[in-house]
Structures are given as C-alpha cells and as structure tokens.
Amino acid sequence: MFGKIFSKKASTQAVKSLGETLSTNEIEPFIKDTLSHYISENFPEGILAVCQQFTISQHKTITVNLVMPFICQGELDLVAQTLSENLACTVSIKVELAIKPVRQFSLGKAQEGSGQGYLPQGKVANIIAIASGKGGVGKSTTTVNLAYALMSEGAKVGILDADVYGPSIPTMLGLKNEKPSSSDGKLMTPLNANGLSAMSIGFLVDEADATVWRGPMASTAFNQLLNETDWPELDYLLIDMPPGTGDIQLTLAQKVPVAAAVIVTTPQDIALIDAVKAIAMFDKVKVPVLGIVENMSYHLCENCGHQSHIFGEAGGEYMAHDHETKLLGQLPLDIAIRQDADLGESDIIENSAGEIAKHYRKIARNISAQLFLQCDIASPLTAKVVTKA
C-alpha cells in the first residue's frame, strides 16, 4: 500500500521495512521517512518540507504531531490509516495550524484619509475572493460550503457577502431577518453561523426592498461592510463576489489586500466564456487566481450511480489547462446541496464524513494548500536566489 503514496524516488529503506517488525527506535525514522516521501498535489516536496514542527509520542498507540501552514487534516488522516496498516498498530496524525498571511497588510489608520480601506492589523490573515463570470453557477452556495469545509478542517473562517444587489448569504446561513449588533457604536459585530463569522448587506436591508444603487454607491457599501465590521481573528475571510467584472470587483482588487481569487464555473460553454473574463480581470489587477472550481459537473443517479454530464464534460479542466491554473475540484449536481442552501443548513456541519462534505473538504484543502504553495514566500516552490562569493 505504501507504494501508492510514495514518490518514485521513495527511499529503499522505507520500502524494505514494509511488513517487518520495527523496534521502538526504528519507528520514528520510518514515519519521518514516510512523511518525507509522501507526494501529492498539495505536498509536491513531501509533508515534512512544509511542516513547521514534528514530534512523535509512543504509548500503546502512536501519535504524530505536526504544525502545518495550511489545512490538511483530511488528507493526513488517510496517510495515518496507511501507516496504521503497515505498522500493525494505531497511528494518528494531529495537525495544529499556524496559518500566516501570504500577503502582508500595509493598510492602517494612516491611510484613512486616502480613500483606501483598512482592516485591523493581524486580525484577518488571508482574504480570498470567490468569483464567477456570470450568475447562476452556484457561486454563493459554493462559498458557504467551502467556508464550512475550511472550518471542519480546523481553520478560523469568516464570510463577507459582497453581492449588494442580490445578497443570498443570510438565507444560506439560516440567518434571515437577523441584524448585527455593535458593542462600541462604531463597528458592527458579525453574526455567527455555527462558528462562522458572517456579514452581509442582507442583514441591514429588508429582503423585500430593492437595492437601487449606482456603481460608486455599491462600492462604498462594500467598503463599509468590510472595514466597519469587528472581525475576530480569522485565518481566511471568504468574499462572495457579485458576478461580473464591475465596480465592486475593481474596488476589491484596488483597495483590499486580497491574497488570491478562486473562480467558480459550470462545464457549460457560456459559463466558461464569462469565467475566462473573470480570470483576465484578476490578472490585470495582479491578484493571483488559485484555480477553478467546477460546479454541477455531473448528476449522479440515485438508483444506478450513473454520472450524467448535463452541462457538458471537463470544461473546467480544459479551462484550467488553457490558462495555466489548477482545477481545484468538481462538485456534483445534487438536490441535497440545493435543499440545504434553501433551508440555511449544510451537510458539512450535519455529516462531515458524508460524500458531499468530502467533496467540499477536499476542495477547501486544495485552496488552502495552493494559497500557501503559490503565494507564500515560505513555499518550497518559491524560487531561491543563491549568491556566490
């Protein structure tokens, strides 16, 4: 089984040790060697290449403690399972997160008069924009479920509904008709949804009222929602962007230290055309695009398990290849996802080990890992400058 998770350059010592009884002194080197040579999309140089701290405790069971810069518990649980099978004893891997900003905040009170927004220094580590070229691709539903998925993997997460014209986040979080409070009369306290910190214009405006604003007014409202909310300490703040490439998107890119963007699309050609425009916009404003989430990729028949590609097949994969980005994951067209969104519930909260939750948690891990690998200077993929005397 280890042959499936080792890279081609896996050490012969590790492979030779399979099936053999190891002494207590040999177990730790074996596990370290295994983690060093485990290769995947999120660990291109092995697990220990990004691990910030590594310890092992051995009693009746073996516990591996890792301090990691991105969420990865779900993937490492599978590694622990394989280690358990090969060592013939229970091995668990416990991950402690040490998520840091990949883009340093240069915003502060000194810029208040410059028209630039600001966030409390050190409170929000990374801002990720979830965008789409057009509406109707399930972007808001995906944003909410990814936020819950990040939380289920141990991260501290907030969500900001930037769609001031059609806010849907309050309904999807089960917070319809809720209003934010304020402890100091200056900053709004975000609402709590199962541990998720949330803010939306939908909390401030009656859902029956039409939001008739011109572009600058909408941008100002977005800035206020972001900067006048008393956000707690967050590893990730997901911003549910309105569809398109208009004023709010430009405001976000120009005035907010966005770490990266994720594009949501369906495999349908018309959705892909508009998604390409979203990628182009983020490229122009120097915001890295981590990759593509293909929503409604297929419908899985409840009776026979057959996959029907209703909106086309592999469109997101081709798009990611053509624009040199990554396909972060594919989500099925599932009635349970729609029902949960309408009811303000989430299968990730109710059944974190279910099939739907597994899809979202895997994509959440990919987003978190790719943010570090692509954007953080500490990434093992970052080019190193070597000078010779």
Rank of each mutant, 00 (worst) to 15 (best):
K16Q: 03
S17W: 01
L18P: 00
T21D: 08
S23W: 02
I27Q: 06
F30H: 01
H37I: 01
H37V: 01
F43T: 04
P44H: 11
P44M: 04
E45R: 05
Q52P: 02
T55M: 02
Q58E: 09
T61N: 09
T61M: 07
V67E: 06
I71G: 00
I71H: 00
G74P: 01
L76F: 02
L83Y: 04
N86P: 01
N86Q: 10
L87P: 05
L87M: 06
A88P: 02
A88F: 14
S92T: 15
I93N: 08
A98S: 15
S106F: 13
E112D: 15
G113W: 07
G115I: 14
G115C: 13
G117I: 10
L119K: 05
Q121M: 10
Q121G: 02
A125L: 12
S132K: 11
K134D: 05
G136C: 06
V137L: 06
T141Q: 10
T143K: 08
Y148F: 15
G154A: 11
G154R: 13
G158H: 03
D161C: 05
P167Q: 13
S168A: 10
T171W: 07
K176G: 14
K179S: 13
S181E: 14
S182A: 12
L187P: 09
P190K: 14
P190D: 13
G195V: 14
L196T: 09
M199V: 09
S200L: 13
I201G: 12
G202Q: 12
F203V: 10
F203E: 08
E207F: 12
T211M: 15
W231C: 03
Y236S: 08
L237G: 07
M241G: 03
M241W: 07
L250H: 02
T251S: 14
V258F: 07
V258A: 01
A259P: 00
A260T: 03
V262S: 04
V262K: 08
I263H: 04
T266W: 06
A271S: 11
D274C: 11
K277R: 14
I279D: 01
M281Q: 13
V289E: 11
G291H: 11
G291Y: 12
V293A: 09
S297N: 06
Y298N: 09
G305M: 10
H306E: 15
S308M: 08
F311N: 09
E313V: 05
E317A: 10
M319N: 00
D322I: 06
E324H: 06
T325R: 03
L331V: 11
D334G: 00
I335S: 02
A341S: 10
G344F: 06
E350W: 00
S352N: 09
A353I: 08
A353G: 06
I367M: 09
Q374A: 14
C375P: 01
C375Y: 11
A378Y: 02
P380Y: 05
A383W: 13
T387A: 12
K388V: 13
K388R: 14
K388T: 04
